[in-house]
Design a protein around this nucleic acid. Structure first.
Length: 733
DNA sequence: AGCACGCCGACT
DNA sequence: GTCGGCGTGCTC
């Protein structure tokens, strides 16, 4: 009797046994189709055995084993298993989260074949043809041909990205016998390793150090100020490993940033197949990219956090850009940290990993200080003429502020306009105003489903909840006392836009926030507008702060950042510092000197002191000391058990029950269970939430405790609409 | 998660 | 008399 143990996408952390007479160990890691209950679903075979604890008459036979798609490698399966046990999430759901859905879909079996990739090259005839032999009126043809002359190849991927019209032009060139198709291969031609500028001595030093240890697990923390050329280091190291026929995995925080880094890598490695994996792809695209990676055809795998689950047989290097970014941690379902899993994977594959950041997370920084990670520092900007921006605080206790702006900021904006330089006004608040207040009875517009205030959006005269998305029409009179004297309080991007439009009627003002780039193409369009210099003043939220290069940007103004200074979130300060460093770093990246002006009521606060000095290390010391005193990460390890229910009391009761089941013997003396408390945002989307914090002296102790406790929690009765989850290494508590 | 089974209220 | 509400429990 041969039995396969199958992981299925169900919230039960166990494998299911099926009869499979013809299966053997080679089928481990293969996709299998089974009937489960009264439905059909796909799963992954994780083990083979010859006996089952399930009564024989209850066992069903598998309906199909997909032997056409290569099995998942043992190392990938180990990653899934680690992820499942570390984050306490059912193995089947971990795998489902990490694989393209099409892979398991019984209906799409045929599409699992890798589309045969054809690339285009010049024929012998074609090599004797010059650009001048093509009519100057056929612009598209000329473009294609010059690309071929330059790179020698049009990769299958590039071809895929072409419009039907351009493809037709290419086929016409083929009809002339100048170009021909051939099966694509991975890195056939040498690629350009040169770049337009020579590395600084700091960069050279960092590159040399990393290159000395490319064949073994070495975690590098690359701490480089904004504009110091971290990307150039990534490229140089990647070049070396690609030349060794190794694959490189690059993780970036956000989908907005993938096109940018993708373009840089494509340009530098035009003949290397690059696959880009992020949530914006459709199922087919994602499957194709995944298969290219799995079969070793893709040299570069670039993507957001989900890309950490890509099978990469010849993995030679992992790069995590902006490693401190919170979007590496998934915030629902499987709450994994792609950055932490990346370190696990690098260790597993015995390859180097580069964690890059201008403001490293305190966790990584502490690991570097303690010698677990190797610290590499870049203190100077890569472009020799580029200097660090001047950062200055404007004390709003003494400087009068009108409509959100102090006099000096308006003056600076005016001067920047005269100098024909771009400015950026940073305000981390969407909408027109964050509060709608009744002057006579102090009523404030709040969301009915969340414990949040509604934000005024002047467009459509709406009030919106930024937490649940609810929207309603703005009222004309106070719903509590009927007074018509209700007014918007505080400033959001839209109000700032209105003020600046009035103040500088001659300027081109461009607002960039989630509301203004809702359409898919808008982001590209906006970046183009900025780069063409058609915007004088940019108004933006953090969307604009991340990773973009605006060469003509000289002035950055930060309007209202204090709000997160005295927050309950223990990471708020770290986060604010990183964000302000990042937005300050947008100024003066190329040949103009940057100025950053920050309006604050607390110019003496250590955060602003460190920021004006641009001294990450000094501030990290301050924060680390505070974390140590408070016994917070990286000096302790956390997990949070959260529950939500229609009534807060139900959530609290569940957590209390869970706490009661926890073993509290000496064995766990380094574990602290706190009392269940209401969450900071108690109400969210019509549910009330509570949480219970677990603090531990070591990661290992925490894991041992959670292993035991989790097993007990899953047996607790769950009544009604109550939902709970465990968050290991939570970002916010 | 789905999906069934199962036991109580307002309807053709 | 039945349609359907969602509480409980199982899926190899």
């Amino acid at each position: 009797m041969t039995i396969v143990q199958v992981a299925l996408d169900v919230p039960v952390d166990r494998l299911f046994d099926y009869l499979a007479p013809d299966a053997d160990v080679a089928d481990i890691g293969r996709c299998v189709h089974v009937s489960f209950g009264n439905r059909k679903c796909g799963g992954i075979i994780l083990a083979i055995s010859h006996a089952s604890a399930i009564p024989h008459n209850k066992l069903k036979a598998v309906s199909f084993i997909d032997r056409d798609t290569p099995a998942l490698s043992t190392s990938l399966l180990k990653l899934f298993e680690f992820c499942s046990s570390y984050y306490h999430h059912p193995i089947g759901q971990v795998i489902a989260n990490g694989l393209p859905t099409l892979l398991r879909n019984p209906k799409h079996q045929a599409t699992n074949q890798l589309q045969h990739n054809q690339e285009w090259v010049l024929t012998e005839t074609g090599k004797n043809i010059g650009l001048e032999d093509i009519s100057s009126r056929s612009k598209a043809k000329r473009n294609i041909f010059s690309k071929l002359l330059e790179n020698g190849v049009i990769t299958a991927e590039t071809y895929q990205a072409m419009t039907p019209y351009v493809r037709k032009q290419l086929r016409e060139l083929a009809n002339l016998g100048w170009v021909a198709q051939q099966a694509s291969s991975f890195q056939k031609l040498p690629f350009k390793v040169t770049s337009s500028f020579t590395p600084t001595t700091e960069q050279q030093h960092a590159i040399a150090k990393i290159l000395a240890h490319t064949d073994t697990f070495t975690p590098w923390l690359l701490h480089g100020i904004t504009g110091s050329g971290k990307t150039e280091i990534y490229l140089q190291i990647a070049a070396t490993l690609l030349a060794q026929q190794k694959q490189v995995l690059v993780l970036v925080p956000e989908i907005n940033l993938t096109p940018q880094l993708e373009a840089v890598f494509r340009q530098r490695f035009p003949t290397t197949l690059l696959v880009s994996l992020h949530s914006g792809l459709n199922h087919t695209e994602r499957l194709q990219g995944w298969l290219h990676a799995q079969q070793g055809k893709a040299g570069i795998i670039l993507g957001t956090r989900l890309a950490i689950f890509t099978p990469i047989p010849k993995l030679g290097l992992i790069i995590v850009d902006e490693e401190q970014d919170h979007s590496f941690k998934q915030q629902d379902g499987l709450r994994y940290s792609a950055r932490d899993l990346a370190v696990y994977r690098a260790r597993q594959a015995n390859v180097p990993i580069i964690l890059g950041s201008a403001t490293p997370s305190l966790e990584s920084y502490q690991l570097a200080r303690s010698g677990r990670y190797q610290l590499l520092q870049l203190h100077t900007r890569a472009i020799s003429q580029a200097t660090l921006p001047t950062i200055r605080c404007i004390d709003t206790r003494t400087a009068p502020v009108s409509e959100g702006f102090s006099e000096s900021i308006l003056k600076a904006l005016d001067q920047s306009l005269r100098q024909k330089q771009q400015s950026l006004v940073f305000i981390n608040r969407r909408g027109y105003s964050p509060v709608l207040l009744c002057k006579s009875c102090n009523w404030i517009a709040t969301c009915g489903r969340c414990s949040s205030r509604l934000v005024v959006h002047l467009r459509n005269q709406q009030l919106r909840c930024h937490y649940c998305g609810d929207r309603q029409s703005i009222m004309l009179t106070c719903p509590q006392c009927g007074d018509p004297d209700i007014l918007p309080l505080g400033h959001g991007t839209q109000r700032i836009e209105a003020t600046l439009t009035k103040q500088f009627p001659q300027a081109n003002i461009l607002r960039v926030d989630r509301d203004s780039i809702r359409q898919k193409t808008a982001w590209r369009t906006i970046l183009n507008t900025i780069h063409r210099g058609e915007a004088d003043i940019l108004i933006g939220t953090q969307l604009l702060a991340k990773g973009h290069d605006f060469p003509n940007l000289g002035l950055v103004c930060v309007l209202n950042a204090d709000s997160s200074l005295y927050s309950t979130d223990f990471r708020a300060e770290e986060h604010l510092f990183a964000q302000l460093m990042q937005v300050a770093g947008r100024a003066g990246r190329a040949h103009i000197h940057g100025t950053v002006l920050i309006q604050t009521e607390f110019p003496q606060h250590p955060l602003y002191q460190a920021l004006t000095q641009q001294d990450y290390a000094a501030y990290a010391q301050v924060l680390l000391a505070a974390r140590k005193a408070a016994y917070f990460p990286p000096f302790s390890y956390l997990a949070v058990l959260r529950a939500e229910a229609p009534e807060l009391s139900e959530a609290l009761t569940f957590l209390k029950q869970a706490a009661d089941t926890a073993t509290t013997t000496e064995e766990y003396d380094s574990i602290q269970l706190f009392d269940p408390v209401p969450a900071y945002m108690v109400r969210l989307k019509g549910l009330e939430r509570a949480q219970l914090l677990i603090q531990a002296a070591s990661r290992k102790r925490l894991q041992i405790f959670l292993d035991d406790w989790y097993q007990k929690i899953i047996t607790l009765p769950v009544r009604g609409k109550l939902r709970w989850h465990l968050d290991v290494d939570p970002l916010t508590i």
